[in-house]
């Protein structure tokens, strides 16, 4: 769209410049890119290529010192799809399904809560709105490993604050037995490949706590960019609150929230800390994510070949996600631009 306007050369309709002159812009571009590209070539793209190589071999601890690994063709890929690897409770499609469900439910809740609270705080004349905003932002400012460890302790069956609180609230009616949030092995919900244990809800709770505030901040920014006279005009036309929200607020929120929701989806899809530290992927590996499996394959099993094949699967899944979400974002942008 804006490609033509940026190149200053096209402004001057002089005789056709030499190749050297014409490529000046490109040369500058490469010069700017060079440092980042060099570093990324070495520390990002090289490991990536190395992964591709490893994924077709039986690369293991023995090969780290430099001895070449034996080629095994597509065995690693086949073993992953068949669930035929050393990791216990490994079922690729179950984990993938859970991973998608996990990211999706989180983002839907984060965005809805974020918008709801932003709209609430944005009401004209609400007392203490600034004070609430300052408090609500706190979870975002805590390092993730601490969030995960604290929530693990919170959900501890015997010493955790969640059970203390529930026990205190229900103590007038009955004595609540300690709930083992993170280890209870019963399925709460089981539909096809989707299995949700109690631990899922504990992880969800922790991640909602962590996730909605930033959504709320982004929504607040968008809300404050809505011209006030739009509402005044709507009011004159006799629109009620819901109609105002539906026809003024939402259309303004969408372009700001959608890209953020997509970003949040990918971040949540790859969220290592909560699953790894809170539930340890349990019970029966039902709360493992692709990223924690990756960690186990590399750190605990040293199955570098299989881990590499696994990472390649992950790469294509995420690439597909990128392309789809990119389209979605573009579509929204076009709609409003």
């Amino acid at each position: 769209m804006s490609v033509a306007t940026a190149a200053p050369e096209t402004i001057a309709p002089l005789p056709r410049p030499s190749w050297w002159r014409r490529s000046a812009n490109a040369r500058t571009a490469y010069l700017f890119l060079l440092p980042a590209l060099l570093v990324m070539a070495v520390i990002t793209f090289y490991p990536l290529m190395f992964q591709v190589y490893m994924s077709f071999t039986d690369y293991s601890l023995k090969n780290l010192a430099g001895t070449p690994a034996n080629p095994v063709g597509l065995d690693n890929y086949a073993s992953i799809l068949n669930g035929n690897i050393v990791l216990p409770n490994f079922d690729f499609f179950r984990i993938l399904t859970f991973n998608f469900f996990w990211a999706l439910t989180n983002v839907v809740i984060h965005v809805s809560l974020g918008v709801l609270i932003a709209v609430l705080l944005n009401q004209k004349g609400l007392k203490l709105a600034r004070f609430y905003r300052a408090i609500y932002i706190l979870p975002v400012a805590i390092p993730p490993i601490i969030v995960a460890a604290v929530w693990r302790d919170m959900f501890d069956p015997n010493n955790g604050a969640v059970n203390f609180l529930l026990g205190g609230l229900t103590s007038i009616f009955f004595k609540l037995p300690p709930i083992d949030w993170l280890n209870n092995p019963s399925d709460i919900l089981s539909v096809g490949p989707l299995v949700l244990p109690l631990a899922y809800f504990a992880l969800l709770t922790a991640n909602i706590w962590l996730g909605w505030p930033l959504n709320s901040v982004v929504a607040t920014g968008a809300l404050q960019s809505i011209p006030g006279d739009l509402y005044e005009a709507a009011e004159l036309d006799g629109a009620n609150s819901w109609q105002q929200f539906r026809h003024i607020t939402l259309p303004f929120l969408r372009p700001a929230m959608l890209p953020y929701a997509i970003y949040g989806f990918i971040i949540t899809f790859n969220l290592f800390y909560l699953s790894y530290f809170m539930s340890g992927g349990g019970p029966f590996g039902q709360t493992e994510l692709l990223v924690t499996i990756d960690y186990r394959l590399v750190q605990e099993q040293h199955l570098f070949g299989i881990a590499a094949a696994f990472a390649i699967f992950q790469f294509f899944i995420l690439l597909a996600l990128t392309i789809i979400t990119n389209r979605m974002a573009k579509a929204t942008a076009d709609q409003y631009a």
């Binding site: 050393v86 216990p88 409770n89 209870n184 092995p185 019963s186 019970p283 029966f284």
Partner: peptide, 18 residues
Amino acid sequence: LNNYWSNFGNAIVAVIDK
């Protein structure tokens, strides 16, 4: 023996809790 731990850990939890 590497593949004993988690598989039988599952069995124990399944018997006791499920």
